[in-house]
Amino acid sequence: MGIEEKLPSGFLLTTVEGVAGYARKSSLWPATFGLACCAIEMMATGAGRFDLARFGMEVFRPSPRQADLMIVAGRVSQKMAPVLRQVYDQMPNPKWVISMGACASSGGMFNNYAVVQGVDHVVPVDIYLPGCPPRPEMLQDAILKLHDEIQHMKMGAHREVQVRELEAAALTATPVEDMKGLLR
């Protein structure tokens, strides 16, 4: 007996955005973009114990054209960056990017000639996930947060308003270097 049995009768009202967001978030298809150590943790997240299938996303798509989430798992070298961008461009809209691990987010401990200092130099990132490597639970948490974001994503004209609001909010937000005190 599910929720539908409890409903009074007749019809149910919701918004197109709500339905679309729900549909989108419940079947995210990640593209396999494993690069380094983090990729092993990403595979572990997909495997038995952590079981991404619970969130409708165990199918890692080998082809970017069938995927709408890119989990950049690992360090992005200068040689890999154009490939990464090409794969991103091949993914159909709407698409999201999780930058998994310290390396993908900021270059991590490799501040040198070879590693791109953050994948956001190449593609827009929705979620930054710290850790070296992040535990599978952390990746799941990031994915659930992304689900939440997708659920509340507006569409069409509303989206434009939302983007403008978000930008205005970002302009007045406290810059990172002014965030003082303990991180808690």
Partner: peptide, 21 residues
């Protein structure tokens, strides 16, 4: 070379113990 990270070069700028990391 798609995962070249420059680790060997980085080692030259860290002390012997940090190299393990």
């Amino acid at each position: 070379g798609y995962l070249h990270t420059g680790i060997e070069k980085n080692l030259e700028y860290r002390n012997w113990t940090q190299g393990v990391t």
